[in-house]
């Protein structure tokens, strides 16, 4: 899922302080899991902003709302009224939701309430870690189910580098060395022969490098 982290309240405040009707708009799927951008969090941010407005003596009306997903058209219908009321929106969706909303309301300022952080997993309650960078050509079949692109700081396709120490990465003693994990998995699966297969120069054209990506399913379009 997509993990996001709330921006500091001051930063959100700076974006909205010149508006008079602000809607803090939650997205109740991915970023609700990490409890940063769901409809409940949107409610809390709205009340913090109201307190801030009172402190600053500014007359800003601040409401909250939200939908299930800001990245799909069909969910927006229920929120049309409140979106049309607002003269600015703080979207607490990931960057996708923020942009999708902005595209729908051409003249409405839409501000990000979160920093979209990564595609990750819930390692345990309150701990989220990156797993995928959506490179567009999955290599997990070669690397024991552990991604060297998302999880090695140098995205080495043929690691580990010389900085791997006691299973940890050279940049941070708390960070697992992805290649140590890969090797441990290959061993557990009795597939260490795979380690010596050189992964060839990667085709990054399906990655960000190839420009914005698009996937079209003509067979299911209506």
């Amino acid at each position: 899922m997509i993990v996001g982290q709330q921006k500091p309240l001051e930063e959100i405040w700076d974006m909205i302080k010149d508006h008079s009707r602000v809607l803090v708009f939650g997205c109740n799927t991915c970023v609700a899991v990490c409890q940063q951008g769901g409809n409940k969090e949107a409610e809390i941010i709205a009340s913090l902003l109201r307190m801030k407005a009172t402190q600053e003596g500014l007359d800003i009306e601040i409401k909250d709302g939200g939908i299930e997903r800001q990245c799909e058209h069909e969910f927006f219908e229920s929120a049309t009224k409140s979106l049309e009321w607002a003269d600015a929106v703080v979207s607490t969706a990931c960057g996708i939701g923020v942009q999708f909303l902005a595209e729908k309301y051409e003249s409405l300022p839409v501000y990000p309430g979160l920093n979209t952080t990564f595609l990750g997993a819930v390692e345990k309650f309150g701990v989220y870690t990156e797993r995928c960078q959506a490179c567009g050509q999955c290599v997990l079949g070669l690397t024991g189910g552990i991604c060297p692109i998302a999880r090695c700081a140098k995205r080495l396709m043929n690691g580990p580098c010389g900085g791997s120490t006691r299973g940890k990465c050279e940049i941070n003693k708390d960070l697992d060395c992805a290649w140590q994990l890969i090797i441990d998995r290959l061993k557990a699966m009795d597939k260490m022969d795979n380690y010596e297969k050189i992964i060839p120069v990667k085709d990054w054209s399906s990655d960000r490098a190839g420009g914005p990506r698009k996937f079209v399913r003509e067979d299911i379009q209506v």
Binding site: A153, E170, V201
Partner: peptide, 28 residues
């Protein structure tokens, strides 16, 4: 070489490239 991570140096806020890795550089 692949090179030390940029977080050790004077441009900690920069990108790293790693389009190739050291083994692929040898091949190249």
């Amino acid at each position: 070489l692949s090179g030390d991570h940029q977080s050790f140096g004077d441009c900690k806020l920069g990108q790293n490239v790693h389009d190739l890795d050291s083994i692929q550089l040898i091949q190249t």
